[in-house]
Nucleic acid binder design. Sequence first.
DNA 1: CTGTTAGCGCATTCAG
DNA 2: CTGAATGCGCTAACAG
Lengths: 342, 342
Amino acid sequence: MPVSIAEVAARAGVSQGTVSKVLNGRVAAQIALATQERVKIAASELGYHPSAIARGLAGKRLDTLGIVFAQGNTFFATSPYFAAILDGILEVVTRAKQNTMLFTGQVWSDARQGLPILRDGRCDGLLLISPPAESDIVPALLEAKLPFVLVGDINPHPLVTSVDVDNVMGARKITEHLISLGHRRIAYLCGPPTVSSVSQRLQGYQDAIEADGIEFDLSLVMPGAYLQESGYERARELWRLPADQRPTAVFCGNDLIAIGAMAALHDLGARIPQDISVAGFDDIPSAATSQPSLTTMRQPMHLLGQHAAARLLALIQATEEPGFKEVLPTELVVRGSTAPPA
Amino acid sequence: MPVSIAEVAARAGVSQGTVSKVLNGRVAAQIALATQERVKIAASELGYHPSAIARGLAGKRLDTLGIVFAQGNTFFATSPYFAAILDGILEVVTRAKQNTMLFTGQVWSDARQGLPILRDGRCDGLLLISPPAESDIVPALLEAKLPFVLVGDINPHPLVTSVDVDNVMGARKITEHLISLGHRRIAYLCGPPTVSSVSQRLQGYQDAIEADGIEFDLSLVMPGAYLQESGYERARELWRLPADQRPTAVFCGNDLIAIGAMAALHDLGARIPQDISVAGFDDIPSAATSQPSLTTMRQPMHLLGQHAAARLLALIQATEEPGFKEVLPTELVVRGSTAPPA
DNA sequence: CTGTTAGCGCATTCAG
DNA sequence: CTGAATGCGCTAACAG
């Protein structure tokens, strides 16, 4: 139903090839100005717009970036982290006049099953939002030769481009903050062990602990999910420990966990930060408004998205070589949820 | 680079047409079971997946829905309303194994300019997130014969399908709540006058006011934007009124405005709800955690998204006729920001 | 300077 | 039951 290039050609009294050249600005193939005029007028009179899929088939860019993520059944509501990253991506994408495809049906654990749809020609490149380390999607994509960049994750492969924060350092700094307040027994409530940020933050936590001569106690490391409910449950478990084994502070793998943990501790009658300090990671919007406000390690999520999108664009235009691993800094934000132990 | 149907055909020793028939389950054109087997095996061995754009060009569905919205430069961060709707949409879309395109470059005021990209063949239908009433996008889409549904807006045209809440009733109910507390002088801080929800809520507000014999005072209606900053500014203006003309309560067009207004009032030394009551609309997540918690009219944003996506799917599959105007109920949520006047 | 031709990968007639 | 031919709308050589 939409007007095709043939109609424009007919109205301008030229061939399709000519229309294509004029409209794509291939001035290289010199075309009489008068003809150019005629074509342009015909096109605009007809309200012509090329079919994206047809030009895609013919081998041109689609000016479309794909965003891949998997979050079970819910998305933004449960992941302010993802929402902020997406926000950053969209800013850059919109400014660059590109479009966006959202792939929500992925199962990270099985790229063989989900990959085809990612490379069936609909987008020029992919942005992967923190896939778990054990997913086979990265090798699959590498093999498919589709440009992509990892966001919120890094990968040792020399051809994988990524944008992430320094999780090890971030976790180390916030743990040091806790130590500097006088805490010696600090728990780590983390996300799923297969996600790389979880192990990296564990590393930073352990580094800080040991640098201070505190013994690393694995029983204080409690894996779960990056969700509020998980924080709630783990904190309850923590509180079941004999009083002399209870930590005086807890570092949570992200703010969602921290907020859940604070809720549980509150329900159990513990006062924060008097009885126990709680620290998070990310600095999502609600960290500032929680009760008490949450001490956390801020991640520039918006920037993460912006930079990742910009890099993918550069990769697609071959302006940049793949393989760069960009690391953004984090920032300690001290609020009301941490204080010296009683 | 990806494997094409020709390769599958070659490997199975049949023609492309046969492969297409087998893989698309056109058992109508009876094909020997042995052949079917051979084709299927060849396809899976080769890891074949059809090119979406090629089959799109050949006239098939792309299994892709487009989501259109325009929010200036920022998106989710500034619009929890939109994020919640998107969440609902994605749930349905993911379950239906469809994909999603996000169109962020639209300028509602000029559909002629932005429309082409929406109908260049990349998606089977469109979801429009509350376009302003005066936008010419609806007539343009109607003319283009592309299935679409309006979310968070309604349109009188008999062929336009939409999903929205009853804004008039919602605004009326919450205004009545304020009146029942004893307020007689109630301001309305609203969003941009061109958005239909703004005028509908104004209607409900006015209905409630007048039903109670209170004189409608246009100077208490303050238009702005659906943003926190706007609420902040308008509330300051409000406070500049001579003490005897100040309202004792303010109904805000959405929660963002309400939160901004509460911040301004707080900064000006007013106590909420003792000195002035504040009510919002939407019930975004932060409404429950604000200080004080916000009384508001809850909108089932998640459902809005789910239903809209389901209807669009039905429209595309021609399971449903266009034109249905679905209206979802709102629910009054009384919290700490409203109380009887001093 | 411009028209013609040949695919891109797939679905779909229409003949056998 | 299966193959060959055609076209979807567009771009990119290649001729003139």
